[in-house]
Design a protein around this nucleic acid. Structure first.
Lengths: 221, 221
DNA sequence: AACGCGATGGCAGCAAACTGCCATCGCCCG
DNA sequence: CGGGCGATGGCAGTTTGCTGCCATCGCGTT
């Protein structure tokens, strides 16, 4: 039994000092999974690091960012992401709550941010191949099924409110409009309005097509 | 900077000796992500552990298994999974390559299996909240977008012949029955027969539901 | 040829879904 | 208060989808 190398550092400053070389030393791939974009309390630190990193778009160097929809909340964040994408990074949006932040570099180093703490943020730096490999595979699984930001922003994936979701579930249950309407306490007319609105949002011409979209985009959960 | 607790053990025997109590001490949730089911070279060890674990279905205890399609390769594996599901475990299939094995217990402990090695398998045991939390969030993202095994196996996924696929595509295109029938060179009556047959295969009560199934199961390709 | 059988398609009747029109209601604002 | 406005719901008419019934057709078997 051996104890492997896992370092815990406190605060941005110490992270940069201890692990900055890991960022700037990235050779092939930089993966970032996060709930939002407020990772670095000190934007200067981020800037300093990112300036010394390899440029995206260089042959054999890719940047993948997987984010929660939360990250798109404010316009500033969206602008930033557009900029990042313009530089060649690939950005995708996952519909689930993601970890506060996970970074994987060249499949060899992994950095996890701890939860918000009253004092300094904690970061965990790992190089254990088993750990990094396992997490990387999970990342891939999440990445594969996430939707591209371009499609997400491009109106391709409509954001459905709670109301639409109820209608959607009723439809998915296979009920007729009448029973569904009764179940939801709506008149037949209004229920059908809701369905029509839903179909408009999905740009579907038939109910089958609407269901197909919902299923493909995993909107029913 | 502190060094966190990450243990690496070699072989099943040592894992059981060192971490067996973590398995049997599971209180709320047992999560298992794996490429296949050949985790334990010694089935006896697995049996011994699983006998001492809490029974699935007990209030507040859940078992989630996320697997690659590889895990369904042989009939023995499928049988095992059916059995596990009958006991109340939730099993889902992810379309991507998963890590060789990751186990998360009560969101507090994480065990990763290393790659196949010439000698004994290596296992990494971690309790660092940051690491476990981060991996758990990634697991959730992968889990949410995976398809349920019941839907994957249980006759629920009928093998659709080329004929059904044509109908399916016509439906997915959003045409009315009339134009679709004309396009396929079928009479309206026959086209509708095809649709009815398709819906029967999908066990769908409405066209929306049928579309939903098709989308969820990615049958339209 | 005669027969059985499955696939096809026309027809009719019914159920379900879609939509325009209008009355109503609650609510906010001037 | 009165008016504007959006959401709701009833009604009616149309379209679309669903299915039973039966005639037909192709095909292989007897």
């Amino acid at each position: 039994m051996t104890a492997d190398q896992v370092l815990t550092v406190r605060g941005d400053a110490e992270l940069v000092a201890r692990a900055g070389h890991l960022f700037t030393g990235a050779q092939h791939e930089f993966v970032c999974v996060a709930r939002d974009l407020n990772t670095w309390s000190q934007p200067e630190a981020r800037q300093a690091i990112s300036n010394r990193m390899r440029a995206v778009g260089e042959a054999g160097f890719t940047v993948n960012k997987l984010l929660s929809p939360t990250a798109l909340a404010d316009e500033a964040a969206r602008a930033h992401l557009r900029q990042v994408m313009a530089k060649g990074a690939r950005v995708r949006i996952s519909s689930t709550q993601l970890p506060h932040e996970t970074i994987i570099i060249d499949r060899r180093v992994m950095i996890l941010a701890g939860r918000d703490a009253p004092g300094l943020r904690e970061f965990t730096v790992t190089t254990s191949p088993a750990l990094v490999g396992g997490v990387y595979a999970l990342f891939q699984a999440a990445w594969e099924t996430a939707t591209d930001l371009a499609a997400y922003l491009g109106g391709d994936v409509p954001h459905l409110d709670a109301d639409s979701l109820t209608v959607l579930r009723a439809l998915g249950a296979g009920h007729t409009d009448e029973t569904a309407a009764r179940q939801l306490g709506l008149s037949l007319r209004t229920y059908r309005r809701r369905v029509a609105e839903l179909m408009a949002k999905l740009e579907a011409d038939s109910r089958f097509q609407a269901g197909l979209r919902v299923g493909e985009l995993r909107l029913n959960r």
